[in-house]
Amino acid sequence: MAQLHETKLRRIKFKNRRGVWTTWGAPGTWSACLIKSDGDLVADLESCPSVKSVSDVTADVDSETLPALNRQTSLLVLSPHQPWATFAEGGGYNDLHDALEHEFPGEVLRTGAVDDNGIVYVWLSRNGQRILDFRTDGMGWPVPPEDADYVDDELGTGDIFIFETDLYPADWPHTLPRVEAAHQQLIIDLDAYIPHLTFNGQFAAEYGHADACQRQHMDRVLQVEFEA
């Protein structure tokens, strides 16, 4: 069920959108990976041992001749409206990006939800170190104490999640009423907009965010080939 912010997000002027397209609204498991650099993004990518090559395919996008991707390549869309560049995938989790969390000399943001067991996560890495780890165990919150694996005596709740970071107080998730609200706020605070951009021969975006595929909202498109 879409929450209020999700419903409102796609109605906000495109360049001002911040947040994530959904938490639970996908028909199945979904994920997204974004990167941000304070320097030369291409050079920073090329410095990663897991990256074989980076090429600009913006002209191919314009001429609609973008070649099919093989399993070792990803498309990276640079936006004129937000500081993050977004990988456009087939929609599922891409383990090619795992190495970037440890290698990329900048920031890597990964988020998504695992439909089978109701897990949502937000991971933020900076210069190879994870500085934010937010994960639920599928129970979410609020959770009745009798249904939880443990009860926090101080908070009087049994809400189960992992929240490891120095960016927020330890009990920050409990200041929000639901998992969806915490998920949205983390992405908003990171100044990111995640429309779940995908590419399967053509660009697509979910849940009313199709305008994210319009060319005026893409600064450049890079093809990133990873080592086999």
Rank of each mutant, 00 (worst) to 15 (best):
N127L: 12
A182F: 03
S31C: 07
E154S: 13
Y150S: 12
T22H: 06
V20R: 11
D153K: 15
M218N: 10
L76D: 03
T58I: 00
V54L: 05
V179H: 04
L69H: 07
H183L: 08
R11E: 15
V51I: 14
S79K: 12
G140R: 02
L167P: 13
G118E: 03
T198P: 01
S53I: 11
E146V: 10
V77Q: 03
L41W: 01
E64R: 07
I131R: 10
T136V: 00
D159Y: 04
L155N: 12
A205R: 11
G90I: 01
A204F: 06
D137L: 02
H81W: 15
D153L: 14
F163M: 09
V221T: 07
T65N: 14
G19C: 15
R215A: 11
E225P: 06
H102C: 09
P144L: 10
A32E: 12
K13E: 15
L100A: 13
A182E: 02
D115K: 09
G112I: 00
N127V: 00
G28A: 15
W172V: 03
D62E: 09
E164F: 06
Y121T: 04
I119W: 05
D56S: 08
C48Y: 06
A192M: 11
D137E: 02
P145Q: 06
A26C: 05
P195M: 09
N70K: 07
P177Q: 11
D60L: 14
L124R: 04
L109T: 06
F163S: 08
D211L: 14
T65L: 01
G201E: 07
L155I: 08
L4V: 08
G25L: 02
M1Q: 03
P145Y: 01
F104H: 03
L109Q: 07
T198V: 07
D137P: 00
P144M: 05
L100T: 08
I35R: 03
V54N: 07
L186S: 07
A113H: 14
N16P: 00
H183I: 09
F104M: 12
R11F: 12
W21C: 11
A170E: 15
F14S: 10
L69A: 03
L76W: 02
D219V: 00
Q184R: 01
K52C: 02
M139N: 11
F163N: 10
Q82C: 02
P142V: 06
F87N: 05
P169D: 15
